[in-house]
């Protein structure tokens, strides 16, 4: 049995009937509670790798294993995303019709959490992000930094084991970027969750305990 929470073996991903090869044989193991930064130039395959690690897409060949179980079917991937993974996106992707506290509850609807618990849990998560006072605001009433903090709270809604962040500071100024990274790393330490961050920001890359560099669809040695 592997000691890795997440493992990929000989992962290939191609588009346009094989004409574009985004990933060309990636092998990787990520342990439980580990903080990993994936970096590389545009088109190096880092976001594609993150999507496959998060169950948003399927590989052309190779396999993704979570706790030694291979993620094969659409049902596996749905359950994996709902129960074990939290996503933070560069563009926040908050739903504009919902208040901050309602946005945090959206992933809970996927798992049919009891209604009363949903609101209480969402509020607690927002307070953890120091956003309790903004819980009733709509996304367009929040600053970029605040939106990303709501998005982080939403990613934690179903208490995932793995937190995936795709350029989480890409739309933020330096102060907010540092704050968000501080929050993410703090969560990884406090909750013991694996944190995988895709970024092209060298400052974040340099500070990472483990750095994976991608180039032309492969992990650089």
């Amino acid at each position: 049995m592997s000691d890795a929470t997440l493992e990929v073996r000989d992962l290939h991903k191609s588009y346009d009937e094989g004409r574009i090869e985004a990933l060309r044989g990636v092998d990787l193991k990520i342990a439980a509670g580990e903080y990993v930064v994936i970096t590389g130039q545009s088109g190096s395959g880092k976001s594609t790798l993150l999507h496959l690690l998060g169950g948003l897409d399927r590989p052309t060949s190779g396999e993704v294993r979570f706790r030694d179980a291979r993620l094969c079917t659409a049902t596996d991937l749905d359950s994996y995303r709902a129960e074990s993974v939290g996503f933070v996106f560069q563009a926040f992707h908050l739903l504009p019709t919902l208040r901050a506290i309602e946005n945090v509850q959206v992933p809970m609807l996927a798992l049919n959490h009891p209604r009363a618990d949903r609101a209480a849990r969402a509020r607690a998560l927002l307070e953890e992000m120091d956003m309790g006072h903004r819980a009733e605001q709509y996304p367009n009433q929040l600053s970029a930094g605040e939106r990303q903090r709501v998005a982080v709270a939403r990613a934690l809604a179903n208490d995932p084991e793995i937190l995936l962040a795709d350029e989480p500071t890409g739309n933020l100024d330096s102060v907010n970027s540092a704050h968000i990274m501080e929050i993410l790393i703090g969560l990884q330490r406090r909750r013991g969750m694996s944190l995988i961050v895709v970024t092209h920001e060298q400052e974040i890359a340099r500070a990472a305990p483990r750095l994976i560099r991608m180039r032309d669809g492969k992990v650089e040695a």
């Binding site: 995303r81 996503f87 996106f89 992933p107």
Partner: peptide
């Protein structure tokens, strides 16, 4: 896409 990424089933 966001809903699906947050675990919503088809």
């Amino acid at each position: 896409g966001v809903l699906r990424s947050l675990g919503w089933k088809r």
